[in-house]
Each structure stands twice: as C-alpha cells, then as structure tokens.
Design a protein around this nucleic acid. Structure first.
Length: 422
RNA sequence: GGAGAGGUGGCAGAGUGGUCGAAUGCGUUUGACUCGAAAUCAAAUUUACCGGCAACGGUAACGGGGGUUCGAAUCCCUCCCUCUCCGCCA
C-alpha cells in the first residue's frame, strides 16, 4: 500500500509513477473515496463527541431523576442518527481500503522506462555463453533424463508440473538446497523453516491478495493458501510488530517448496524443469532501515549472484523497466542463467525492494531514536530457485559420454563430481 | 476430535454496566541526590486515524466481528487463539 497522504497531497506524482508501470488505475475514484471518507469521519466523530459529553453529565447525576430521563431521551434520539452515519462511514471506509490495496507500488526513480520485458536493461553479464559446452542439449533430451525426473508419474499422481525427482535427481535437489542455505548462512542470513500454508491476512500483507488468488493453491475447508514463495510466511513473521531500531537490518533465509498455479503458459516455456507448479527455492529476506534499502538491494543482488558464480553458470542481471515491474516492487533485478541446450536465458532469481509497500500492509515498523514508530523497508530475492539452476547445470555441463560434470562448489554436497542418468 | 479454563498496556496483574485509555507492581527513559554507582525520591512512558503550520484538540482500540443498552473492558452471540485433561497420531 502506498502512503494515503502521498495520494492526497501529490496525486500527480502518484499518477505519473503508476503510468510508468503501464497500469491503468482510476485514481480520481480513489481520491474521491478518500475525500468522502474523511468528511464522514469528521461528522461521525463529532456526533460521538456529543454523545460522550452528555454521557459524562449523566454519570454524575442520580439515576431515574427527571433530568436523567431527559438525557436518556436525548441520547436515544441521537443514537439513531449516529448509527446511520456510522454505517455510511463503514461502507466508504471499506471501499476506500479496498481501493488502496489495489493501488500498485510506485517505481523508484532509478527504474528505467519501458513497456515490457523487451525494455529491461541488461545491467551486467558474467561468464562466457559461447564457451559452455559442445555437447549441450535441452535437458529433457538428455538420454535417461526421465530416470531422474519422472514427469509421467508426477502427472499420474498429482498433475502436470509436479515431477518426481529420483536417485541422482533427488540428490541434486538436496545438494543445491543445502549449498544455497549454507551460502546464505555464511552471508549473514538466519535460517528459518516456515509454515508453507498461510492465511489470507498474510497473503494480503505481501501483496498476493487481493487480485492474484488465482495464482495460488487454496485449501478447501481451512481457507489457507499454499505459499507461492517463502517470502510470504517470512515477511509476515513480523506482521503487526514494532522492532527495535538496533536490530535492523534483519536478514533471514528460508527453504520452502513453492506452489504456483501459473495458468496460461504453454509450449517450450513449460517443458521439462522450465516451469513447474511445485518447485524448491531458497528465499533471502531483509527488513531494513528506510535509508539503507537501496544499498541493501545491491548487496542482496550480489548475494544471489555469488551463488551463480560459484556454480560457474553464465548469467546476466536485468534491471526491470517500469512496465515489467511487479505490482508490489519499487525496483527489481532479475538474475537470468544461460541454459546452453535451449540457448535461452532463464530467470532464477528476482531481487526486489518493496520499500514500505509491504511494511504498510503488514504494519511492520521500527522505533526511531525519538520514540516514533516508522515503517521498515522490506526486500527479498531468490537465492536461488532450484529447477532452472538444475536445468542449466545439466545442459551446460553435459559431456560427450552423456554424463554431467558438476562444478567444484557442488561436489562435496552431492558426494560425487558426476551425474549419471541410469 | 471431546470436555473445561482463559485471552486487559513492553511484562506481570487489578478491574464484572457510568469521566476506565484503564489501579498497582516490574521494566524503560529523564531529572534529583552521589566523587561515581547502587539504593532512594520525582516525573514521564500505547497505538492508529482525523483536524491544525504548530502548540494542541478530537475520535477509536481491553483477541476479531456482531448484538443488548442512553452508556460495555465489564452482559449476550459468534469466530479465532492459548492453556489443562481425554482421545488420536508422525
């Protein structure tokens, strides 16, 4: 949620920022709701003030006297009007709140203009794409692939996009997760093992709701959502809390399976490990002082990059343009890894600064030196998503004999330096 | 899943219909005393929103929501959560 005062005082600024995201929002309608809400609030508060004043008098006079009964009558009459006004206020207020929840976050000034993915800026590249592998092929075409990654049985048991990982396949997932978590720990992130179902309040706080419920799996009778990312339970850990300024920045990481319904994708995008309904990911999360959030964003991005460097995977960093920014992000870098077999870049991490957008929804604050609560800034990034990293490892490191040579960083986690597809 | 008890300020803990945003204790902050510290004494110490340049004023909040009443922390309904006992269970 953006600051209501900002919309009130500088609507043009808000309008321009939203335009940069190429979203259409009826700001006038929101502003009108805000105006009406305040007018009604003032009215209701003054009526309640009257009630309180008369009530105060009554408290001091003996019960049952004619004066007392007169006051009762007076307040009885007043009550009807107040109830009606309160009802109106409530209606306006919930409409206004809903509208505010549907307003996107504003892009940071350093975000480049652009309409879609094609306008993103290549911020940095690392590694030599041309020199990867003479034997690369799309990972699902590697002979024996289905021995390690069983999509057919996954479809039978659950549905498309829910593979079984078998033998070295399962072992690779475990090795990567272990590697990611250890690296995050070394970088100062405290490991957390969070719930993987969250309630609606949590999903609202991080921006999944309202609006995007179709992208989450929902339980039938308990009205819980399977987490699309560990970001949701992790961020909500401090919901409705005021932190001590001295503890900032708080840095945490978590592994969770992630569940995404992702309706509407097809073709090569969803072949093999490219896009799944369930996948494993380690998420990095920070709660920081507002003055530090952009420094922290760069550090976060570097923490994620380091993983790709250690895995010896060529990657590039994209600075997302306004039109390709998500609803809740103020600024976002995507890390894309090169998959030599498909000759494509794949997003394996998305590092974002939400500024106070999530913190305002979640009411996560810290106490400043002068004792006043102030909203923190939240940031998160993948560190990293497993299946696409895995796909790139398989494709880029495929050898002539059909085995895959693992990067040195992974050998101790995997237990061997070679993956076979038997 | 069944039965019972309970959810009050940073914490502990009073309050069972009328100036109660809420006693008291602890904690914290500031000041006094002291060479300094402890102890002691004094004062301060929730949050949100609205109005206001500000000082300040107003309204709301005693787990959430609804109801009764002129008036609710207090009575009623409902949901959530915690604890105890029983059942079940990795």
């Amino acid at each position: 949620m953006i600051d209501p005062k900002l919309l009130r005082d500088s609507p043009d600024l808000v309008r321009a920022a939203i335009a940069q995201k190429h979203l259409t929002v009826d700001l006038e309608a929101v502003a009108a709701l805000d105006t009406r809400w305040r007018a009604q609030l003032i009215e209701v508060e003054s009526l309640r003030g009257q009630q309180k004043a008369v009530n105060g008098d009554m408290a001091k006079m003996p019960k049952g006297t004619p004066e007392f009964m007169a006051k009762v009558g007076e307040l009885k009459a007043l009550k009807v009007g107040v109830k009606a006004k309160e009802g109106e206020l409530k209606t306006t207020e919930s409409a206004w709140q809903q509208a505010m929840l549907e307003l996107p976050n504003l892009p940071h000034e350093s975000v480049p203009d652009g309409r879609n993915g094609g306008d993103n800026v290549v911020f940095a590249t690392n590694g030599d794409v041309a020199a990867v592998s003479a034997y690369a092929k799309a990972h699902w075409e590697i002979p024996g692939f289905e021995n390690l990654f069983d999509f057919r049985r996954g479809s039978k048991v659950t549905g498309a996009g829910f593979p079984f990982y078998i033998g070295d396949g399962a072992r690779l997932v475990r090795a990567l997760l272990h590697f990611f978590l250890n690296e995050a720990g070394n970088a100062g992130y405290t490991e957390v093992n969070p719930p993987i179902f969250v309630n609606a309040a949590s999903a609202i706080a991080t921006g999944q709701l309202p609006d995007k419920e179709g992208q989450m799996y929902e339980t039938v009778i308990d009205q819980l959502y399977a987490v699309p990312t560990a970001e949701v339970p992790l961020t909500n850990f401090f919901r409705d809390e005021i932190l001590d300024e001295a503890v900032l920045p708080v840095k945490r990481c978590a592994y969770t399976p992630c569940f995404r319904r992702e309706a509407g994708s097809y073709g090569k995008d969803v072949r093999g490990l490219n896009r799944l309904h369930q996948f494993d990911k380690v998420e990095l999360l920070k709660w920081v002082h507002p003055t530090q959030s952009y420094v922290e964003l760069d550090a976060l991005k570097e923490d994620a990059e380091r993983l790709l460097q250690k895995l010896e995977l060529p990657y590039r960093v994209l600075l997302m343009c306004g039109g390709d920014l998500g609803f809740a992000q103020a600024k976002k870098y995507d890390l894309e890894v090169w998959a030599a077999g498909q000759e494509r870049w794949f997003e394996v991490s998305s590092c974002s600064n939400f500024e106070s957008f999530q913190a305002r929804r979640a009411r996560i604050r810290f106490r400043t030196a002068d004792g006043k609560p102030e909203l923190v800034h939240t940031l998160n990034g993948s560190g990293l998503a497993v299946p696409r990293v895995l796909a790139a490892l398989l494709e880029n490191n495929l050898q002539a004999d059909g085995t895959v040579k693992l990067p040195a960083a992974l050998v101790s986690y995997f237990g061997r330096d070679t993956v076979t597809f038997k």
